[in-house]
């Protein structure tokens, strides 16, 4: 199962797991995510608005799956910001994977600021339907 490492309230600045400080002078947000499981795979949908597909970085280290996204600062030449309801910055989130995920077949796609991760289950962990025979 894909599980989250630490829970932080939504949109709150995510701190680095080891307590260190980020070296980039940008806000770091925890990407909002949906996690659901079908018979064959576990899907993780993570929101990273403003992040281009090439700026998404996914690393798997042992059972820790880290997703990172870098968004460029919005530039509006000749404009000044007068009102803000959301901040922009980078995104990060760490998930821990269980043994049932087949690490070699993890697929990722990124479109319109949404990262879709497909974590296929290994053959052992797939749901099998057991027929009940009438005697």
């Amino acid at each position: 199962m894909a599980q989250e490492m630490a829970t932080v309230p939504n949109r709150e600045l995510a701190r680095q797991g080891d307590g260190s400080e980020a070296t980039r002078a940008r806000a770091l947000y925890r990407a909002a995510a949906d996690i659901y499981e079908t018979g064959e795979s576990i899907f993780v949908l993570a929101e990273m608005p403003g992040v281009a597909p090439n700026d998404v970085d996914i690393t798997l280290e042992r059972n820790l799956l880290t997703i990172r996204g870098r968004a460029p600062a919005p530039e509006h030449k000749g404009y000044r910001q007068v009102y803000a309801e959301y901040g922009d910055g980078d995104y990060e989130r760490v998930f821990s994977l269980s043994e049932e995920v087949d690490r070699d077949r993890i697929k990722a796609s990124h479109k319109n600021g949404l990262l879709v991760l497909e974590l296929p289950k290994s053959a052992m962990a797939r749901t099998k339907r057991i027929e009940v025979k009438a005697s």
Partner: peptide
């Protein structure tokens, strides 16, 4: 699907 977490 079996939903584990829904934040969106």
């Amino acid at each position: 699907a079996n939903w584990h977490r829904q934040e969106r």
